[in-house]
Amino acid sequence: MVIAEIGTSHEGSIEKAKKLVDAASESGTDYIKFQWVYASEILHPKTGFVDLPTGKIPLYDRFKELECPPSFYKELLDYTHSKGKKFICSPFGLKSLEELLSIQPDAIKIASPELNHYKMLEALRDYRASQKEKIPVILSSGVSKMQDIEKALKITGTENVSLLHCITSYPAPEEEYNLKLITKYKKEFKIECGVSDHSLDPVLVPALSIACGGTIIEKHITLSRKTSGLDDPVALEPEQFGFMCHAVNQSLASINHYGADLGSKRIIEQISEQYGEERVKKVLGSGIKELAPSEKENYGRTNRSLHYMNDLKKGDVIKEGDIAILRTEKILTPGISPEYYDTLIGKTLTCDVSSGSGVMLSHF
């Protein structure tokens, strides 16, 4: 299936969001995806700044601008369904997850930075355990190591769960994609796999992902790369997105006609004629899981860790609200893994700490 990732490209406008749904629908996508944003679930207010065409503003404030009420997403779900497409959305914490589940989406997408948001994964697991037919879940695996993927899948389980290979870099270099990992994941985890593609080319990574056994392709869509959405610079405009869907259909036709092995070989041959054998070889990679060069520096910063939400003194006892599971991002120092959250509630500090700083075991 193809997922058109609108994300927050609507910038809070229901009219623009519907135009994006129209464009995605006409391009030939199957799923249309959004992001349910609350800034406080993602970042600490002191996380740093982002450069925009209008100037430099706090990244936290930029996310605050993208917050929308549940009614906004419910209207988009209904509008997406009216187009004959399925609605999928990413939550970023317990509040957004609960509200998203209340409108009954067709699937839940866990974005790469939330792969280690264990409290959210556990809440989703508990919800699915109460369902007779489990809602589909798609996990994205950018800026992660093999043990991170294994730990997430241990929580969610594998029933009606899919996995997307991803590089958390904007844009992501095609030559770093290592798409043979899709084949490895399918064999190792015995689930459907695909790619979340942040590269700029509309064909190279999507087509080769099918040759590697991928069955899901997610790519950002925007009305224009020149608009100010956070992901617009790496998104495809509608004409490009339609071209990608056409290339995907051609690749699928090859698989269906010739079978998996011969069809994959023919896709690789055709893409090699267009892009060159050496480049295709690099995109396919080794199939060995490791952080891509473009995302190594982001490991621990883009994904989640524990941060203090208040200035606290030596001798203070940690209570709910004093620490949070956040992305570190720009200028703060990462804390320890979110798996320690419950362990630290009720523990006593042995030093003063400042709001925003990363939580360390040595502080206790």
Rank of each mutant, 00 (worst) to 15 (best):
T215P: 03
S130G: 00
S254K: 14
Q240N: 14
T158I: 06
Y258K: 06
T222A: 11
Y177P: 02
E150V: 12
L236M: 10
F243P: 01
S141T: 15
R225I: 09
V137Q: 03
V137P: 03
A235P: 01
T227H: 10
S254A: 11
I217V: 09
T158D: 00
H165D: 04
P136A: 11
S209R: 01
Y185P: 01
L181R: 02
Q131R: 11
L200H: 06
A129E: 12
K145P: 08
F243E: 11
C193Q: 07
G142R: 01
H220A: 08
Q240Y: 07
Y170P: 13
T215C: 02
I255D: 00
T158V: 06
V143Q: 14
V161C: 10
L208W: 06
T222K: 08
K151W: 05
H257A: 15
G242P: 12
S224D: 04
V137A: 01
L164A: 03
R125C: 01
E176N: 08
S144L: 08
V195K: 01
Y127G: 12
E239Q: 12
P233S: 07
P171T: 06
I216N: 04
R125I: 03
D126I: 11
A211T: 07
P171K: 11
Q147H: 15
V195Y: 02
I217F: 07
K190E: 03
S254G: 05
T168S: 14
L200P: 10
I138L: 14
I191V: 10
P202L: 13
E174V: 13
S140K: 02
A152L: 02
V203I: 15
T183S: 14
K186H: 08
A207V: 15
K184Q: 15
N160L: 07
C245I: 08
Y170S: 15
G194A: 10
T222N: 09
S162K: 03
I138P: 01
S130V: 00
G229F: 13
P136L: 10
S144H: 10
L208Y: 09
T222E: 12
G157R: 05
C245V: 11
I255S: 02
G242W: 12
S196C: 09
H198I: 13
L179G: 06
G259T: 14
Y185W: 02
C193N: 06
I135K: 03
I255E: 01
I182N: 00
A129G: 00
Y185H: 05
P202G: 12
E239K: 14
V248C: 03
I217A: 03
I210Q: 07
